[in-house]
């Protein structure tokens, strides 16, 4: 599937601000089931970018706007080719005992720990064993946790903040896709299943049957099946990740992968508008320029 993405964030400030230093994680990842064909990042006021790969191999762009400005626009456009990610064979079992090895594995260890916004403590564990009373197969358990998260929590825009901790979400029983992902991660980790956070975009046709999380950046998670690899699960929509999902960045939780993050000097009052457009960009058709 060829998809084009426009992602625009506009900050407006009451008074001019200066020394704005920011990091952006907006470039779609390259991996076996996804190619980022083109990527263009701009800001207004204009700035120059430097880029580096972070610990999880996400591309981070750094930019600064030092001079006084009243508004800052960060706009990225990307063209991505996605392919259906493979699914584990139907007949393959993933017995829980095999998870023990993951605990000492370089690739899994830190996706089993409590992190800044996710806790795999007692509260998560209780809910997890309610949903999966007798865990035996990792894949089955993960699906049950996804279903359980989807059913237990109410999808409710603006009910939480960007820094809302998963424990708070467990109390509220509602949240946005970020919170759904955090919950599923916490539940999985509490059972010993490595789970990581993915931020990206989801393409869906508008109208009835539209999926949640398509008009802004989306978030879901990936669980590790021992001996097989990472499987993407979207608890907000209760489905396995397919070719409509564009992966941009992954990490332990949201804190590792915010689309933009930074600091500036100036007064606190500020407004932010985010606009995301994901469109099908069939290679054989002339695409109208966006924006």
């Amino acid at each position: 599937m060829r998809l084009s993405v426009l992602h625009r964030t506009v900050y407006t400030y009451r008074q001019p601000v200066t020394d704005s230093v920011n990091e952006a994680r907006l470039r779609p990842l390259d991996h076996p089931f996804q190619d980022c064909l083109t990527f263009d990042l701009r800001t207004d006021p204009p700035s120059t970018f430097s880029a580096y790969p972070d610990f999880y191999r996400n591309t981070v762009h750094v930019f600064e706007v030092a001079t006084p400005h009243r508004a800052l626009t960060v706009e990225s456009r990307s063209l991505v080719e996605t392919r259906p990610p493979p699914l584990p064979p139907d007949n393959q079992d993933f017995p829980f005992e095999q998870l023990k090895k993951s605990a000492w594995d370089l690739a899994c260890y830190e996706f089993l720990q409590s992190t800044e916004l996710v806790s795999c403590g007692i509260a998560a564990w209780r809910l997890a064993v309610d949903l999966v009373p007798k865990p035996s197969d990792v894949q089955e358990a993960a699906f049950a946790l996804m279903r359980g998260t989807y059913r237990t929590f109410e999808y409710c825009p603006h009910s939480t903040q960007v820094h809302t901790h998963m424990d708070e979400v467990l109390r509220l029983r509602r949240g946005v896709c970020q919170d759904f992902a955090h919950v599923l991660i916490g539940l999985s980790r509490s059972l010993g299943i490595p789970a990581r956070y993915v931020s990206g975009y989801l393409f869906t046709q508008p109208g009835p049957g539209a999926l949640r999380g398509t008009e802004a950046s989306h978030a879901w998670c990936e669980v590790h099946l021992p001996g097989w690899g990472w499987l993407g699960l979207d608890p907000t929509n209760n489905q396995v990740v397919d070719e409509r999902y564009i992966r941009v960045a992954l990490g332990r939780d949201y804190h590792d992968v915010p689309p933009t993050r930074g600091t500036y000097r100036g007064p606190e009052s500020r407004e932010m508008k985010v606009e995301v457009e994901v469109r099908s960009a069939a290679p054989d058709r002339n695409q109208k320029p966006m924006g």
Partner: peptide, 26 residues
């Protein structure tokens, strides 16, 4: 990370070190 991969220091000890700076990998 040879020292981890060759099993001299278990990965968790490095990854959980308070002052390990993921940001400076590579």
């Amino acid at each position: 990370q040879r020292i981890i991969k060759e099993g001299v220091i278990p990965a968790p000890y490095i990854l959980s070190a308070k002052h390990f700076r993921r940001e400076f990998m590579g």
